[in-house]
Amino acid sequence: MKTRVTLTVNGQVHDVEIAPHYLLSDVLRDVVGLTATHVGCEQGVCGACTVLVDDRPARACLTFAIQMEGHEITTLEGLRDDPVTQALQQAFHERHALQCGFCTPGFLVTLSAWLKEATDPTPAAVRDLLTGNLCRCTGYQNIVEAVLSVAATECGR
């Protein structure tokens, strides 16, 4: 049943032995060993498992790992040196935009990609974007403020 698949995650090549029905979220966490990608619903709703596939946000729980051969996967671990992500992390820290932290990686990954192409990140646009990421702790207010503070300096660069 299992087959060998070559995955490129955060620029590193991993040869993994997996079954076709293994979800990317599980393979990243259990086989590749990167646990920043969290699993919150496996229904595509909560957004905690959001990763980048070829630099675009995607739900790892709605993707089979075997599909990813030939594609570049980026997880939060791979955005360590990304300036937009770093700015987001600092803003989240300063504005108390996380509590339990479980949803946070999904927010950061989604936002890091979005801020690079957002032209007019108004509060309404940020909130609309974030409907795809659920947070049960913060009430979103501090998250929105953190994003807007980063947008003020990062957008249009």
Binding site: T35, A36, L76, R80, Q89, F92, H93, L98, F102, T104
Partner: peptide, 19 residues
């Protein structure tokens, strides 16, 4: 004071049960 928990959580280095 800013939260000391944030450092690990913002890096995805939290340690939840499934991690």
């Amino acid at each position: 004071m800013l939260r000391r928990e944030d450092g690990r959580l913002l890096q995805g280095r939290g340690r939840y049960v499934d991690d």
